[in-house]
Design a protein around this nucleic acid. Sequence first.
RNA 1: GGCGAGGUAGCUCAGUUGGUUAGAGCACACGACUCAUAAUCGUGGGGUCGAGAGUUCAAGUCUCUCUCUCGCCA
Length: 572
Amino acid sequence: MARILITSAIPYINGIKHLGNLVGSQLPADLFARYNRARGHEVMFICATDEHGTPAELAAAKAGKPVAEYCAEMHEVQAEIAKGFRLSFDHFGRSSSQRNHALTQHFAGRLADAGLIREVEEQQVYSVDDGRFLPDRYIEGTCPNCGYDSARGDQCDNCTKQLDPTDLINPHSTISGSTNLEVRTTKHLYLRQRSLRDKLEAWIDSKKDWPILTTSIAKKWLNDGDGLQDRGITRDLHWGIPVKKGDQIWPGMEGKVFYVWFDAPIEYIACTAEWADAQGLPDAAWQRWWRTDMGASDVTYYQFMGKDNVPFHTLSFPATILGSGEPWKLVDYLKSFNYLNYDGGQFSTSRGRGVFMDQALSILPSDYWRWWLLSHAPESADSEFTWENFQVSVNKDLADVLGNLVSRVTKFCVSKFGNTVPSAGEMGEQEARLIEELGQRIKDYAACMEAMEVRKASAELRAIWVIGNEYLQAAAPWSVVKTDPERAQAMIRLSLNLIRVYAILSAPFIPDAAATMMAAIGSDDWTWPDDIAGAMTALPAGHAFSVPENLFRKITDEERADWQQKFAGIRS
RNA sequence: GGCGAGGUAGCUCAGUUGGUUAGAGCACACGACUCAUAAUCGUGGGGUCGAGAGUUCAAGUCUCUCUCUCGCCA
């Protein structure tokens, strides 16, 4: 039994995420967590909401609520939706937790002690009317290069020239529209990533089995231009983790908070502590997942994220860990995903384009979405959601291939032999072949799952479902029953057992349907079918079962057309 | 502009270290079956692997040039 630590990139607090966000981190992480639990491994699966930063403050202001209250509410909303998608986090925490405050301050203190923090005085734009410093992208004005009148403080969208906010002509705050801006001097802390560059590169180079997507992004940041740059880790904001050196005041940094990207990954660790607190367990319970000197040396740590998160997880966060000089667990395998596009373009949160998690669940149960998203996960390249493809995949794979198989077996048995597992008849050559092929297929499936080859795993699972239909078609118990009812009983006995095995194998992808199958078959034995021959005879003769409602319904053309239009534009 | 990832059957995608007639699912056509959610199973048609040049006995797979798409540029 292995010990497996899994973290999903933590979703930002301001609003509900779309399906592209889901498939890039939380969902594949959940698949992997469920699979490893099914194999009997000890799993810790962690996710949280990322709550700090200017966008959260602004969203709260827009909602007319104090930011802490807003975040608490949105956390509950996201937690509910995560449950709706059956995301099986051991804990869904909050980056604003006291645990994260303490741990973030602790890391900053360690980094300072190691000489890895430097203080920098810089000029930043302060909005008098907003009463706050403005991040570059919240300042707009006329581009000095091309005259475009909505250039942002960091870049002109028209001529793409990189800008400093102070370059802009007639700058104004995009928060209030105020032009009452002034440049003020402020002091910030920088993490000296440059001095850790070689150490980070050696660490990245040691990861031979990481996806190219992951290592190429990391390499780029290590080597591009002047190489890895030091990074500001503090901000002049109110909402965030106060800058402290451990539990001590940091002179000159009063009133400032850590930058959201500094504290967010630390929440992975803090969240595990939150889990221990919630379980009423001592610190040792979470430390044995994270501290190699406290029992975590046998833990394998997997991270899941979209490609936009890779730099922070391959460089900034490891810099924090390595720089601390303490034996914290570094990631062992980083699985990154490309983007999911929506019907010929991008998902857009601001324009309400595409399907958001809450809307998806209001249309269809989570299994439908889980199946499509995972079987089309953007692993090797960006992939695309279209309603036609979604409809076809769901109807064919789930309803026709799997759902119908369960129907035909259970209904046939009830009509011919009653609602218990029939006892007569012997297995023949066809059954032996089925079992043999199944055994091989399950090995292939498991190999894909262990390699986190999500698409391939889904294809293998589908192939496993198809085997059942192939067998039935060839064995044709509906014909055999007329001349040799005992043979037909043996066939159906095997087929009923097959449904239980399919429930186990399918559960990581479609947990609800799997539970329905298992319940219908009247079993609660989720043991992974390593011994396939044994698993295929697990249900004793006379064991009662029931015919489940149809596992999956089909998506009609009308629904498809309706949804296509509904989600094309502005969110209502 | 720089960097990165891609351009393989109508559609969505696989194609390991270069090696026999380029694969899967869907869609399409035909056939079988009738237990089942008009479901299932089988067979078949369909691709000059973005364009060109090069290396090689041999290239979708390596090199160069060009072209198109997408992303990133703190």
